[in-house]
Computed example of a mutant assay.
Amino acid sequence: MNKILHMLSSFFSKSEFDLDGYHFKNEYKKDKNNVLLDVRTVTEHDSGSLPSAINLDFLSSSFSSSAAALPKDKAYFVFCRSGSRSSSAVSMMRKMGYNSYNLVGGIGAWPS
């Protein structure tokens, strides 16, 4: 029963800024000014990332100030390993006035 409640809660708590891999990739590719933002650690990023993604470690103490330095005239398509850190990053960035989207399921959800 708890699993069912958890699944329902997860389903209904998704925001319009949480995109599955297909929609995330398609929306990202609509505008050449869109930015892929990898919020994994430097080690994770260096072990393999999406083409042209910039790395801004969400777990770093400087994430907020680094994010605040990003241009606000771009849309940010944010991903991590599982979708958890990127969801938190998108929430924070949206509160700062950024147009940002989360890849639900993380980098593994990016369609080939």
Rank of each mutant, 00 (worst) to 15 (best):
V104W: 01
L56A: 05
R94P: 12
R81P: 00
N26Y: 01
S88I: 01
T43P: 04
T41C: 01
L37D: 01
K72A: 06
S112D: 14
Y76A: 01
A67W: 00
S84Y: 03
L8R: 09
Y98H: 00
S49T: 15
D31L: 05
S66V: 04
S10M: 05
T43R: 05
K30P: 04
M7G: 03
S47F: 04
N26R: 14
V78C: 10
N102W: 14
T43N: 07
K32C: 02
C80A: 07
K95R: 13
M7R: 11
F58T: 08
G105M: 05
L50S: 06
F79H: 15
S52D: 11
Y22D: 15
Y101Q: 08
S66Y: 04
R40G: 08
S112N: 10
V39E: 07
S66D: 14
D20A: 14
H6W: 08
S65M: 10
S86Y: 08
G106W: 09
K95H: 13
R94T: 08
L70W: 08
G106H: 04
N2Q: 09
D73M: 07
M7S: 13
F77G: 00
S10F: 06
T41R: 03
D46N: 14
S82D: 02
R40I: 04
S47E: 14
S82W: 02
K95N: 14
V104Q: 07
N55Q: 12
P71V: 01
V42L: 11
V42N: 00
D57P: 07
G97V: 12
A69I: 10
F77M: 08
D20H: 11
I54E: 01
S9E: 14
S84D: 14
A75G: 12
D20W: 11
M7D: 12
Y101S: 09
R85N: 04
I107C: 00
S49L: 06
S49A: 12
K25V: 05
S47D: 10
Y28R: 11
D38A: 06
I107G: 03
L56P: 05
S87K: 07
M93T: 02
L37I: 04
S84F: 06
S15H: 09
V90D: 01
R94F: 13
A75K: 15
Y98C: 00
S91W: 11
I54Q: 10
S100H: 00
F77I: 08
N55T: 02
Y101R: 05
E44S: 03
K29I: 03
N99G: 01
S84N: 15
S9H: 15
N102V: 07
G21E: 01
I4Y: 05
P51C: 12
K72H: 08
S87P: 06
S87Q: 15
N2K: 11
E27K: 11
E44Y: 05
F58Y: 15
A53W: 08
L5K: 09
F58K: 00
K3Y: 03
L8K: 09
D18L: 00
L36R: 10
C80P: 04
A53K: 12
K29M: 13
